[in-house]
Amino acid sequence: MTLTTILPAHRFKAAVLASVLFFPAAQSVLADEVVEQIELGLELYQEQEYGAAITELEFAIEDMRKMMSNLIAQTFPDAPEGWTAHEATSGSAGGGAAAMFGAGGTSLERAYQQDNGNGQLTASMMLDSPLIQSMGAMFNNPAMIAMQPNMERIRLGREAAVLKWEPERSRAEVTLLLDGRIMMQVKGENLESQDVAVDLMRDWDLAAVREQSAR
């Protein structure tokens, strides 16, 4: 009996990678706990204590999700000149990105504050939410985008995003659907123009997002 017969191949790979990646101190401790949980799950499985084995493996998977979220958080763009960035946080508790896109999946967000002004930006990301596919239908339909007020399709390198700019309210919203399973968004308030929101999305390291969220 091997470990890969208990965990799917992609999860087993994630467990191995998680044990060697990450912030040297806290992440190594968490990785050690994951290994212990997997080993205990294997032991319980071999003893035919299936319920207890499932519990341990579910704890291990949840910890690996936390580790993946920490890696993804490092992909968020730095603050624009004249702005200050806060630490990226998980939106899984129901606020921020989770509230926007609905339950399910992994969500993260990072807030930015204008140093000498009232401007605010929030960059958020949702992975593998059930709602992403349904929202993607609009992004692939030019007619639907054209029907929305103050909304247009823009290019960000090879990727296409949707920009909503409300000048009368000084609000901007840039949304990018990546690979059909990752929704990325920058929302801004009290902005002089949409440019700062568009540029923040443009500065997001999409290659790193793909790498850290691979499955």
Rank of each mutant, 00 (worst) to 15 (best):
T75N: 08
D78Q: 11
G188N: 00
E39G: 13
R215F: 06
P24C: 08
F12Q: 03
A111D: 05
K13G: 05
G102I: 00
F59S: 14
E43C: 13
E43T: 15
E168M: 07
I6V: 14
L21G: 08
V162P: 05
G82F: 03
W83C: 08
A97L: 12
M126I: 13
N141I: 05
V16G: 05
A85W: 01
N70M: 07
A26R: 12
R202P: 09
Q194C: 08
S69F: 04
R11N: 06
L57F: 02
F12H: 02
R210M: 02
R169Y: 01
A103E: 13
Y50N: 12
G119V: 04
V34D: 10
A85T: 04
L191V: 00
M100D: 15
M100H: 15
E192P: 09
M201F: 04
V174T: 05
L156P: 04
Y112T: 00
R210Q: 03
Q194S: 10
S129M: 12
M1I: 15
R169E: 04
T122D: 04
D115C: 03
E49F: 12
P167S: 02
Q114M: 09
S28T: 15
A137C: 11
G96S: 09
E47Y: 13
M68W: 08
N70E: 12
A99D: 10
K164Q: 09
A88T: 04
E192W: 09
